[in-house]
Design a protein around this nucleic acid. Structure first.
Lengths: 364, 364
DNA sequence: TTGTAGGCGTTATCAT
DNA sequence: ATGATAACGCCTACAA
């Protein structure tokens, strides 16, 4: 890794730290230049009708030429609203979170809000710090995505006096405001689809035990099985951690079974990625030997080989909904934000009719 | 999409907007409780040695019990430093950007900085707004990742009096501070690898024409070809837009050639994803019929079928380096941050020896 | 329509 | 070691 640190910088406008001496123009500077009082400048810049149109125009022109930018920090101090929100994710380097962040950010920006992003890495200590930072920043609201150590710090959040909206939280009940996907219905649709293709020996490759979304998806799996009278085999349930690598190992367990499954219903697309690789490594084919389904419909789902049948989660839209809900709450609305979005099954090539010689339903 | 808006919330601590009437405790409140002056509280909380150990302890205890959190906005107003940075990306919903964001965010947090995230969607108007917002927020510094409309708004940034660090900027020269990947060397390594496997008819599937990183990668492609005396065929160069879909179409063009390439060197992993699908759709196999290389080494690169040979870019590290450079600049250091990181070829299964009956080198 | 005065919650500069 | 006082840059009365 080459690190070429050059010498003094040349003709830059702000060579490093010299800027510290300079000062951005304040409202008083503009007032002086325009030969009016500070409040008049303030009014003019806010397009207040209380100011003469001509003077307002003149003031705006002068302010513009001076490169004046009203300080949001000073404004925040007096108005007690920063027009700022805090967004917590376990990690941005996860396609699901990225999409949610994107939805939140765009909606926030459209409404004049800036967003502080913080990822916790699912580290409780870090999350604690993050939340404390948000509190000190005086954010007007907070959105937390798929909190996994939620139980540890969410109680603290209630101490802060800002509304909080959770997206796919893993510890339901503790909070009122949330945006969630219909996990149960989503997976149920996927399993029904598999059953419709003739599969009887269907495995569930889940997330870590104890998470709400995993529990709900598992429940959907069970429900679809039960509704069709297919017996539940505990050995067909394995757990990963929502990422490909752990799914590879979990899938190996399934493949090592005396009677392997003919289909695997994965907790999410990342797990499906690992499952498919594991299947290939075993010399088996998707979907000829084993069908695979995912959850989320991340961008790569249509580019796997074969393309992944999955349950679409409108991630960006969920971020948008969370932000819209938060906006209402910040505006003082007394309602409770409780949104559930539908999951949609997207059938692609990773699922197919169970093969004739598959002995998957031998025991059912 | 079900939206169940409930009624009034129940026993919540902060049912919606009632919080607006409440106020977080201020330093004066703590001072009153502790029977000292405000400045003393301030000193105690900053662990100043100028305050009696016992009184300091008492004050901290009281502040803690009262749930006191010093207002960063008030502090920012007086200190003229917000300990805040602005991070601009074209879109977070892109694995490359996500990783960079992750690196920046973690490093920033470790140093007590909070980060404002804004994605521009490569929309000039939006970018303009974003930058204006950062200026008003009085961020201490800015990091811009792979700016694509940089030329449009970067000049404005110089008006603000904060240091700016660019990561893989597409318009070099305009700014001093930057963190970049060695594009040329990276692609050159990939092409040499292909040449070493016997390939002679190697295509380049690039990004949009005119971008710096694409130009550099293309230059690496040319250089590797020239060094080996392999003639350059313009028809083997096609352009996508850095995303899978456009790469599918670009690859189709290559496959329709009278003499298709035996290997394709893609601008990035996202493009490689599209290219591989396109090849499969044509009934050809990777790497038996056509070898494929990517760039970035995104998380999915090791999970494609076959696993993708690619040029690793230490994205998270680059975000970290950008932030560390910015920290120096914000501390007033006069040096110029000019960092180039090495690209590393990761050989996986998507590249193989050119097949005997491939007529790729017929014309060379 | 405009100007004056006060305060938002801190830190900094003086005193004491 | 602590307290009074003055900023920081803005907005919101209220007065003119």
């Amino acid at each position: 890794m080459a690190n070429k640190e050059g010498g003094k910088s040349g003709g830059m406008a702000h060579p490093g730290g010299s800027r510290r001496n300079l000062r951005q123009p304040s409202i008083k500077d503009i007032a002086r230049l325009a030969r009016v009082s500070h409040p008049t400048v303030s009014r003019a810049l806010q397009n207040s009708p209380l100011v003469n149109a001509k003077t307002a125009a003149k003031i705006r022109k002068i302010a513009d030429e001076a490169g004046y930018r009203a300080s949001a920090v000073a404004r925040g101090l007096v108005t007690r609203r920063t027009r700022t929100i805090g967004l917590v994710v376990t990690t941005v380097a996860d396609p699901f979170a990225s999409e949610v962040v994107c939805g939140v950010e765009q909606t926030a920006n459209d409404h004049g809000y800036s967003v502080f992003l913080a990822d916790s890495n699912a580290d409780p200590e870090r999350e604690r710090k993050v939340v404390q930072a948000f509190a000190e920043r005086r954010v007007d609201g907070i959105i937390v995505t798929s909190s996994r150590v939620g139980a540890l710090y969410l109680p603290r959040l209630t101490e802060m006096m800002v509304p909080i909206v959770l997206v796919n939280d893993q510890y339901p009940g503790a909070f009122v405001h949330s945006v969630m996907i219909r996990n149960l219905e989503g997976i149920r649709a996927a399993v029904r689809h598999l059953i419709g293709l003739g599969h009887r020996r269907i495995a569930y490759l889940g997330d870590q035990f104890g998470y709400q979304s995993d529990a709900e998806r598992f429940a959907g799996y069970r429900e679809a099985l039960d509704a069709t009278g297919i017996p539940f085999h505990p050995e067909l349930v394995v757990h990963g951690d929502g990422k490909p690598e752990a799914a590879v190992r979990a899938m190996e367990t399934l493949l090592s079974l005396a009677i392997p499954p003919t289909a695997v219903c994965c907790y999410n697309d990342m797990s499906a990625l690992g499952a498919m690789q594991s299947i290939r490594a075993r010399g088996k084919r998707v979907p000829e030997d084993i069908s695979v389904t995912g959850f989320d419909d991340l961008f790569f789902a249509s580019y796997t080989d074969p393309p992944l049948t999955t349950v679409r989660q409108p991630m960006r839209r969920m971020g948008q909904l969370a932000m819209e809900g938060l906006l209402k709450l910040m505006a003082g609305e007394e309602s409770v934000v409780k949104i559930e979005v539908e999951a949609e099954l997207i059938v692609r090539g990773s699922t197919a009719k169970v093969s004739r010689n598959a002995n998957g339903n031998r025991r059912s």
